[in-house]
Design a binder for these strands. Structure first.
Lengths: 124, 124
DNA sequence: CTGACATTTCTATGATTATGGAATAATCGA
DNA sequence: TCGATTATTCCATAATCATAGAAATGTCAG
């Protein structure tokens, strides 16, 4: 994960409407939701929603697929995890006080087993 | 963790200089670094650095303490974890496909034992 | 092909943010 | 107290971003 990608992701999430959209899609899971359904749920004007969806998509946080006349959006969990991993990289210089930094973000043991290429995480 | 706090945190991190500062402080751990040391490491003008440090502090991501003439800054890991937790709340409607959302951010088993008031995390 | 629907792109406006020079404030050794 | 050190606040300028109306695009049913 490169810094500019992380910056784009954080900038995308640092806006109330987009944060609402993202959380709605996290909740929706892999099935996702249509643009119209999101617009209705959040009471946002279509043009405004489209602007934000485009922003989130360019940041790589969500992906789009077409289903008939609707465009369905869903979150890209890998990208999200990459951003979190970037923030905790080299935590405490990879040593020092474990109390302070262990919680930041470590995969669960089950997840670690099935994981392909995990980004470096702070386990200190 | 309230939405406005999460937004402030994300907005603070969504800026290159501040992201650099934050990561430097994550690496430094609980000991932290002085403003001057940060300015030198990142080659940022004092007024500009101060602006960004103030921003990060107001967002609650870093804390300040005085040590003689220097102001020492260090990260607030709890706040960081709260933000990550907020992003993954209600992941996949608390059920559904575990493959998709498990990795987002779950505390390690050891951390879970010693934890006081953990924010809700996505373990699906 | 036509009309209805779902969503995006275009465009203009108003609002927020980053930068760094200069001045100010806090701390400390002599 | 004086001067040096460390860092912040003030200020003006330049740049970026959010919003939503109107027009355009893509999809489909009949």
């Amino acid at each position: 994960m490169e810094k500019k990608d992380v910056l784009a992701g954080l900038a995308a999430l640092a806006q109330e409407t987009r944060l609402d959209i993202f959380r709605l899609l996290v909740e929706a899971g892999p099935e996702g939701r249509s643009a119209g359904s999101i617009a209705e749920a959040l009471a946002v004007a279509p043009a405004t929603l489209s602007f934000h969806l485009s922003n989130l998509t360019q940041a790589g946080l969500i992906v789009q697929r077409r289903e008939s006349r609707s465009l369905i959006y869903s979150t890209d969990f890998d990208r999200m995890n990459g951003i979190v991993g970037f923030l905790s990289e080299n935590c405490c210089g990879r040593s020092a006080n474990p109390v302070a930094c262990v919680p930041i973000c470590a995969p669960t043991p089950e997840a670690a087993n099935t994981e392909k290429t995990a980004a470096p995480r702070c386990g200190c």
